[in-house]
């Protein structure tokens, strides 16, 4: 257990760079996401994680470190978090990481978090490209940290963190002692836009780069070769036949009922 005081509260927030959600996404020759051909942005859901980290810092003081793993253009996403207000960045980058699945990604992130003395590690709840919602739970398992995921609220008091975990039928109130790992859902806050001052300040903030050797991870533990699952084949779904669209002329409801009858729904 660890008392948080304003001098020491340290938050690591994990953000991922993803293809713009409107972009047409394709798989490359090795069945990994073709990241080169699309505009890349910060995973929308990770903006809420950065915002929550900054709000906790505003309430308790301390420091916010943004952590991201990805190819060289990932620096743009780290800069965005820095321009929102995070203090410094850590960029995990190594050609050997290309093609890492969630298990491998969680190993690299866990190694990058370990030893930094974080009181809180904050994640988004899902990456919009992988859509797995598994990396936070995996990192919690690896680091032995209490897992407080899918949080719609987070509060820290002394050495206790308390969250509302969104469930199927409402929410669970979950409590743990720091250090702990949290993921947030989008209901939690409204992310700020970087200000001009923030963008200027971000240019001077420090971003440390770390490679596999620096993490103490060997090349066979990550990347395409070190991943424990593999895509064997991929095919475009045949485009859906165009549906029938009619304009309501006073009998639109009946027209739908006819369609539903024909399809045996009624």
């Amino acid at each position: 257990m660890r008392e948080v005081d304003s001098e020491t509260m340290k938050i690591v927030v994990c953000v991922k760079q993803v293809p713009d959600s409107w972009a047409e996404k394709t798989l490359g020759a090795d069945n990994t996401l073709d990241r080169g051909s699309v505009d890349a942005v910060m995973n929308e859901l990770d903006e809420y994680a950065v915002e929550e980290a900054l709000r906790l810092q505003e309430a308790h003081g301390g420091e916010v470190i943004v952590l991201s793993m990805g190819p060289s253009q990932t620096t743009d996403t780290i800069r965005k978090a820095l321009s929102m207000g995070a203090d410094s960045g850590v960029h995990v980058i190594d050609d050997g990481l290309h093609g890492s699945d969630a298990v491998a990604t969680s190993l690299a992130l866990a190694k990058a978090i370990e030893g930094r003395g974080a009181d809180l590690v904050i994640f988004g709840s899902e990456s919009t490209d992988a859509r797995m919602s598994v990396v936070p739970a995996m990192v919690a398992e690896r680091l032995g940290l209490p897992q407080l995921t899918f949080s719609s609220s987070v509060s820290v008091e002394g050495s206790t963190v308390r969250t509302n975990r969104v469930t199927e039928y409402g929410y669970d109130v979950v409590e743990a002692s720091l250090p702990a790992l949290v993921s947030v859902v989008e209901k939690i806050n409204e992310p700020r836009y970087p200000s001009f001052k923030g963008i200027m300040a971000a240019k001077k903030k420090k971003v440390e780069t770390v490679d596999l050797a620096g993490l103490g991870v060997s090349a066979d533990q990550v990347g395409l070769a070190g991943s424990w699952s593999a895509v064997e084949e991929a095919a475009a779904r045949p485009p859906k036949a165009k549906g029938t669209i009619v304009t309501d002329d006073g009998a639109g409801g009946t027209a739908i009922a006819d369609f539903l009858s024909a399809q045996k729904f009624i």
Binding site: K25, T26, N31, W228, S229, E233, A234, A235, A236
Partner: peptide
Amino acid sequence: GATVVKSKVTT
């Protein structure tokens, strides 16, 4: 839904 993939756990 635009792409259908088949995947296997390898380890």
